[in-house]
């Protein structure tokens, strides 16, 4: 009994100080951590593949007339799975390392991306098949870069 208690005490003494000084010192997540999504508006060409695969339905795509496509990210619903990053053919979406995302303003949780589209006069689409769009359309499984590219 006494030896058991002494052993337990020894384990506690050996442990030392465990608590990290966060938030007074920064605590960076491990490389590869999936944090808040970031958008590069110059790269996005509006294919909507991200909206197609998002399990939480964060991304809504709608067209305003023939020339403007609006992508709205209601990322309060985001589960940080990184599927959008994986399927984006242009690396327009990436998962950042940012995890401190608490806010008291609902507007902070919405991102809006407006993409100017130039539809093909003949077919209404822009590209010669097979395009990345065809890959998005396939049911079953869609391949990806492995999340870390």
């Amino acid at each position: 009994m006494l030896t058991a208690k002494l052993r337990e005490a020894l384990i506690c003494f050996k442990a030392g100080r465990v608590t990290l000084p966060y938030p007074f010192a920064p605590h960076d997540p491990a490389p590869g951590f999936r944090g808040k999504i970031t958008l590069d508006p110059d790269r996005c060409f509006g294919c909507g593949g991200c909206a197609n695969v998002c399990p939480a339905g964060v991304i809504q795509v709608r067209d305003a007339g023939q020339l403007l496509r609006v992508l709205e990210f209601q990322w309060r619903r985001c589960t940080y799975c990184g599927r959008c990053e994986e399927v984006c053919p242009e690396q327009a979406i990436t998962m950042s390392q940012q995890f401190e995302t608490a806010t008291d303003r609902g507007d902070d949780m919405v991102m809006r991306l407006e993409v100017f589209m130039g539809p093909c006069q003949r077919c209404g689409r822009c590209y010669v098949p097979p395009t990345p769009l065809d890959r998005m359309d396939r049911t079953g499984f869609r391949t990806g870069s492995g999340g870390r590219s």
């Binding site: 465990v18 997540p29 491990a30 490389p31 590869g32 951590f33 999936r34 589960t79 940080y80 799975c81 990184g82 994986e86 998962m95 499984f141 990806g144 492995g146 999340g147 870390r148």
Partner: peptide, 27 residues
Amino acid sequence: EPVMWLAEEISGNRKTYGMNTIGGLRR
């Protein structure tokens, strides 16, 4: 706790790994 950190490093999150997909793994 170090095992949880390990999971974060391997998968990108300490708990919701998001690694499995049909046909294998994403990472």
